[in-house]
């Protein structure tokens, strides 16, 4: 019962921070709200027996990705004129489209009934995930490692002067 309550609290926090993230004008504030979204999601993961994933989420998302985004925002140091957004008719249409999509998805998800079975206690621990990653999912794992390498090299090449 406590877990369910905490999941809803974290979820509400995540949704609120997500809204704040897209509403704030200054990207550095947005980035901090983004960090809070990720943190509350990590909380939900931990409550759903994904302990390892929760820590990886904090390590990679909050500790590396958010920091990197904040770092680049501070590095680029752009002026205030970039921050003023214009309200156009297209944006109005975008919001309407998003709302329609939301209602559609809500109808679909509302019709689902997921019962769920209780997983074994060692489910979600590092050893379990490591075993699954390196046996059944070895191929995606290798592919993603190559992707990461390519991304690193590409990122350095793109950001390099001339």
């Amino acid at each position: 019962m406590l877990a369910t309550m905490l999941i809803y609290i974290f979820g509400a926090l995540a949704i609120f921070s997500g809204l704040m993230m897209i509403l704030y004008r200054n990207p550095i504030h947005s980035a901090l709200w983004f960090g809070l979204v990720l943190f509350s999601l990590a909380g939900i993961y931990a409550l759903m027996q994904a302990h390892f994933l929760a820590l990886i989420q904090i390590l990679v998302y909050v500790g590396a990705i958010t920091v990197l985004i904040v770092y680049v925002i501070a590095l680029l140091n752009f002026d205030q004129r970039d921050l003023v957004g214009k309200v156009t008719i297209l944006k109005g249409i975008a919001v309407i489209v998003a709302a329609i999509l939301f209602i559609e998805l809500l109808f679909y998800v509302g019709g689902l009934y997921v019962k769920g079975i209780a997983p074994p206690p060692e489910f979600g621990k590092a050893a379990n995930i490591g075993l699954a990653t390196l046996t059944r999912y070895l191929f995606p794992f290798e592919v993603i490692s190559i992707l990461l390498l390519v991304a690193v090299v590409g990122g350095v090449y793109i950001a390099k002067k001339d």
Binding site: I56, I58, L59, V62, G63, A126
Partner: peptide, 9 residues
């Protein structure tokens, strides 16, 4: 992992 995750904050 916890140690590294929290210290990266």
């Amino acid at each position: 992992i916890y140690l590294f995750a929290l210290s990266s904050l």
